[in-house]
């Protein structure tokens, strides 16, 4: 298993290199540059030249790319070009933990609602509960977070006035880098965005859990377990559930990509200073190093998540061996 993970990481290195190169070239190909304007006026030519020289932007592209890569290997994500009081590491330090909290809390919400809902629907197969749960799940999958966000703001923020409708309740640094603080302010602020992102996830998970459990419940080993006289609860929770999670694990990869995408939208709607919002806002100001670094972080998350999914896979289904 360790060998498998190591090999996957090794394979990921050229992929990361290619993504870094592609993004770097794409960002540099964008017309206009970071030093075109100062305030609302055009930057004077001599000053721009000095600035470009200072950040090495006048060098040939391959020189720039490899010096960026060299810095990257030392943990230096590069300078900020417009807002020169900070560098990319500072920005990532401010935004990354927030996005991770949003993503993980939404995933937890998705699992906490989705798995039990799926189990109940499968056990009460063909009942009214099942029909309702299935319908609600399709609804949950179909409401885009683009729509759900404003609707939640309207219902819980404006009419009921229960939760604040914008910003994240706490700023980094957090304990252990990303642990959410246990303050009321944090959780009330987190409620709506996490719900906006987590609802679709929970709906998807509940559909898969239901389908997986229905499939597994007709297997022979379940009949055997019942024939041994086990209680139904033990049959479901111990024998059936683990295998029924396999289809859930298969979508974890795409799900992770969905969370990354969704967090971009949700951060925008709720004005949360996360990576997604920073990514969008930094394109306009041509922050070359920030854009490339954030794209790389996104793909590291994706690759890491997919490796974790494969490991989970092998744990769920011992027939799967990676050698």
């Amino acid at each position: 298993m360790i060998k498998f993970v190591l090999r996957r990481i090794l394979v990921a290195i050229p992929v990361m290199f290619a993504i870094a190169l592609a993004t770097f070239l794409m960002v540099q190909a964008l017309p206009g540059g970071p030093f075109d304007v100062v305030g609302f006026r055009a930057m004077p030519e001599p000053i721009r030249e000095i600035l470009e020289e200072r950040y090495g932007l006048n060098e040939p592209l391959y020189v720039q790319f490899f010096s960026y890569l060299g810095n990257l290997l030392q943990g230096n994500l590069g300078p900020m070009l417009r807002d020169q009081s900070q560098n990319v590491n500072d920005i990532v330090g401010q935004t990354f933990p927030v996005s991770i909290q949003l993503g993980i809390l939404s995933l937890i919400l998705g699992l906490v609602i989705g798995v039990p809902a799926g189990i109940i629907a499968a056990l009460r197969h063909n009942s009214a509960i099942d029909a309702t749960a299935t319908f609600v799940a399709v609804l949950g999958v179909s409401v885009p977070n683009l729509v759900l966000g404003p609707v939640l703001i309207l219902i819980f923020g404006v009419y009921l006035d229960w939760f604040p409708v914008a910003f994240w309740g706490a700023d980094p640094p957090f304990t252990l880098y990303f642990l959410p603080p246990l303050t009321i302010d944090f959780w009330t602020h987190a409620a709506l965005p996490v719900f906006a992102l987590g609802t679709g996830i929970s709906a998807g998970i509940s559909r898969l859990t239901r389908a997986g459990l229905l499939e597994v419940m007709s297997e022979d080993y379940i009949r055997t377990a019942r024939a041994k006289g086990l209680r139904e609860r033990a049959v479901v929770l111990i024998h059936a559930l683990k295998n029924s999670m396999i289809p859930v694990a298969t979508v974890m990869g795409p799900l992770l990509a969905g969370i990354l995408t969704g967090s971009l939208v949700v951060e925008q709607i709720f004005a949360i200073n996360g990576m997604g919002r920073k990514f969008i806002s930094s394109i306009g100001s041509r922050e070359y190093f920030l854009i490339t670094s954030l794209t790389l972080i996104y793909s590291v998350l994706l690759i890491g998540g997919n490796i974790m999914v494969d490991v989970m896979y092998a744990w769920l289904d011992p027939r799967i061996r990676y050698d």
């Binding site: 394979v11 990921a12 992929v15 990361m16 290619a18 993504i19 993004t23 794409m26 960002v27 190909a29 964008l30 017309p31 206009g32 990869g253 990509a257 990354l260 995408t261 971009l264 990514f279 969008i280 394109i283 854009i291 954030l294 794209t295 996104y298 793909s299 998350l301 994706l302 690759i303 997919n306």
Partner: peptide, 26 residues
């Protein structure tokens, strides 16, 4: 496939669109 699965689709599409739109404006 391995390569494309590691690509964060939305950020890349955003960059592509920014590029296309900048071209279109020029």
């Amino acid at each position: 496939v391995d390569f494309l699965y590691a690509i964060p689709v939305l950020p890349i599409i955003i960059l592509m669109q920014v590029y296309f739109q900048a071209l279109a404006r020029r």
